[in-house]
Amino acid sequence: MGKGKILLYDTKKKFFKILKYAFKKDFVFDVYSDITDFEALLDEYSSAVFVIYSESNLKEFMRVSQKGVPIIVCTSKQEIFEKLKDINEIFLYDCSKIKSEMVVELKNYFSFEQFVFHSISIQ
């Protein structure tokens, strides 16, 4: 089984450094700071990760969030976390945790997401 491809929207590329190092054996991350052509990219990725630092990032996410791809939304801002907590279609992740804790939790999520995605594809 090849590496999974994940679209990563990270305008500051801080989270990308953690993911790239921690998951380099299992996934390929393509980083975007502008996702104007998000719809055209969907077929290439098994999931998407949005790192939201600001209200403008949140607006960009909301514009593309209903496109049918498993999405992780990462933020350390409590007010943004509160705005998104009731959206069932996303996995909301608090990235204010320490790096080692984030890696373990995300590893579990990616393993589960790949299993679910693969199971749905087989049926």
Rank of each mutant, 00 (worst) to 15 (best):
residue 85 K to A: 05
residue 56 S to L: 07
residue 42 L to I: 15
residue 28 V to D: 09
residue 58 L to R: 05
residue 12 K to N: 04
residue 13 K to S: 09
residue 7 L to F: 09
residue 89 E to S: 14
residue 92 L to F: 08
residue 121 S to Q: 09
residue 42 L to C: 03
residue 79 E to N: 10
residue 3 K to S: 06
residue 43 D to L: 05
residue 104 V to A: 03
residue 13 K to D: 03
residue 105 E to N: 09
residue 5 K to W: 05
residue 31 V to Y: 00
residue 52 I to N: 08
residue 17 K to G: 02
residue 48 A to L: 06
residue 92 L to I: 06
residue 43 D to Y: 04
residue 55 E to M: 10
residue 28 V to I: 12
residue 5 K to Q: 09
residue 33 S to E: 12
residue 1 M to V: 08
residue 90 I to Q: 11
residue 41 L to G: 00
residue 40 A to N: 12
residue 73 V to C: 07
residue 4 G to R: 09
residue 65 S to P: 01
residue 50 F to R: 02
residue 21 Y to W: 04
residue 59 K to M: 11
residue 95 C to Y: 04
residue 114 Q to N: 11
residue 67 K to V: 01
residue 105 E to W: 00
residue 19 L to W: 04
residue 62 M to L: 15
residue 23 F to D: 05
residue 43 D to C: 01
residue 46 S to I: 11
residue 35 I to E: 07
residue 103 V to F: 05
residue 85 K to M: 11
residue 55 E to H: 08
residue 55 E to S: 07
residue 98 I to V: 08
residue 120 I to V: 03
residue 23 F to R: 02
residue 40 A to R: 13
residue 38 F to R: 03
residue 111 S to P: 00
residue 80 I to T: 04
residue 74 C to S: 13
residue 50 F to D: 10
residue 115 F to C: 06
residue 31 V to M: 01
residue 64 V to Y: 15
residue 9 Y to H: 05
residue 2 G to F: 01
residue 94 D to R: 04
residue 83 K to S: 11
residue 33 S to W: 02
residue 63 R to A: 06
residue 86 D to W: 04
residue 119 S to W: 03
residue 22 A to F: 08
residue 74 C to F: 01
residue 85 K to D: 11
residue 78 Q to P: 00
residue 90 I to P: 11
residue 78 Q to T: 10
residue 119 S to T: 00
residue 112 F to Y: 14
residue 32 Y to H: 10
residue 48 A to V: 15
residue 83 K to E: 14
residue 63 R to M: 10
residue 58 L to W: 06
residue 89 E to Q: 12
residue 104 V to T: 13
residue 89 E to R: 09
residue 37 D to L: 07
residue 116 V to H: 07
residue 35 I to S: 02
residue 4 G to N: 08
residue 99 K to E: 15
residue 33 S to P: 00
residue 43 D to G: 15
residue 33 S to K: 09
residue 53 Y to C: 05
residue 102 M to A: 06
residue 97 K to W: 06
residue 90 I to H: 10
residue 118 H to E: 12
residue 22 A to S: 12
residue 47 S to T: 02
residue 87 I to F: 15
residue 13 K to A: 08
residue 45 Y to H: 03
residue 110 F to N: 09
residue 78 Q to A: 07
residue 62 M to N: 13
residue 71 I to H: 03
residue 41 L to A: 03
residue 56 S to P: 01
residue 13 K to W: 00
residue 10 D to S: 02
residue 55 E to P: 00
residue 21 Y to M: 05
residue 62 M to Y: 05
residue 91 F to V: 12
residue 4 G to V: 02
residue 94 D to E: 11
residue 108 N to Q: 13
residue 49 V to A: 03
residue 106 L to I: 15
residue 64 V to C: 10
residue 8 L to H: 03
